[in-house]
């Protein structure tokens, strides 16, 4: 009898403690959620940087649906309102995310992560136009896959770190620690690519799309770009243009943004051109994360540069 009363008492005490712990944990998690900085981003790399650096102190939103190119995505009015409510809006700069140019956002919340190297952006090759004597202009001015130069990616991550630290100076040390880890990973990839690129100096390469300008500039790759879609077999005229290009730029490899159709691969193989994928990862990858995709990219490119 006394032992069952003892058991009951122990059980009751345990339950009380459990309730206290549950309530405390609920309160702590609510407080943490309230304390977290609300960060909105314009592409997946920035989401990855912010999450790696901000960790549990940030809630990062990247509202672009899977499969859409964030550079050309158009938000609804409700989505713009959501961006307006954020504590921070991380921009890629280099005229990325066209909608930013026509949206009204609070300057105090905007962070142009490529501002540090804004003077070294690669000009885009758009068709220009003019109206009478007002001077020629183009509607999109710069190549925008800035993060494919890992040194620039580290600079963008640093801008993210600084912006978060400005908002939460009390946990700056934590942001700095996380940034340093991320930076070291970028530097490792940068060093690896540099070694590979030096071995294959000036080797002609093709790109399915003009998105590798910064990659080519940083690692001195000799890339010429086509306008081929990976999910579509190029038309005959495009094959003819490729053959003509090959006479001056005898590339053995073509770099794709994502895996191309087998028919395209076969026909390229027949021309003596191998295919490798180097995904810019502008949108959330189906598997893995930004760093795993970039590591796979470097490994893939290694095949072309070997």
């Amino acid at each position: 009898m006394s032992s069952s009363a003892e058991r009951f008492s122990v059980m009751r005490t345990s339950l009380s403690w459990l309730s206290v712990l549950l309530i405390a944990s609920a309160v702590t998690s609510t407080t943490l959620a309230e304390d977290r900085l609300s960060v909105y981003v314009v592409n997946y790399p920035l989401k990855y940087f912010a999450e790696r650096i901000g960790a549990e102190h940030v809630s990062v939103e990247f509202p672009v649906p899977a499969g859409e190119d964030p550079a050309f995505w158009k938000p609804t009015a409700e989505m713009i309102a959501a961006y307006q409510r954020a504590d921070l809006i991380l921009l890629n700069g280099a005229s990325y995310a066209k909608w930013i140019a026509t949206a009204t956002l609070a300057r105090s919340r905007l962070v142009d992560t490529s501002r540090e190297f804004a003077d070294h952006l690669v000009a885009g090759g758009n068709v220009t136009h003019s109206h009478g004597n007002t001077g020629a202009h183009a509607h999109g001015n710069f190549a925008f896959t800035t993060w494919l130069d890992f040194n620039q990616a580290a600079a963008q991550a640093k801008a993210v770190m600084e912006a978060l630290a400005r908002m939460r100076p009390d946990i700056r040390a934590s942001f700095e620690r996380n940034f340093e880890v991320l930076q070291s990973e970028f530097m490792a990839l940068d060093a690896e690519l540099n070694v590979m690129a030096r071995k294959a100096a000036n080797r002609p390469l093709l790109a399915s799309h003009p998105v590798y300008q910064y990659l080519a500039r940083r690692y001195a790759l000799n890339i010429k770009s086509l306008h081929w879609e990976p999910d579509r077999v190029p038309e005959e005229s495009e094959w003819t243009r490729l053959a003509a290009m090959q006479r001056e730029h005898a590339a053995k490899w073509i770099i794709w943004e994502q895996a191309p159709l087998e028919a395209s691969v076969q026909r390229l193989n027949a021309m003596g051109i191998g295919s490798v994928v180097f995904s810019p990862a502008a949108n959330q990858p189906e598997r893995g994360d930004f760093m795993t995709v970039m590591r796979a990219n470097v490994a893939n490119l290694g095949r072309a540069l070997d």
Binding site: V127, H129, H131, G132
Partner: peptide
């Protein structure tokens, strides 16, 4: 279009 030259398209007042 008034003229197209070197990748630049010049429009007239009809635009």
């Amino acid at each position: 279009v008034l003229e197209r030259r070197d990748g630049n398209v010049m429009a007239n007042a009809k635009l």
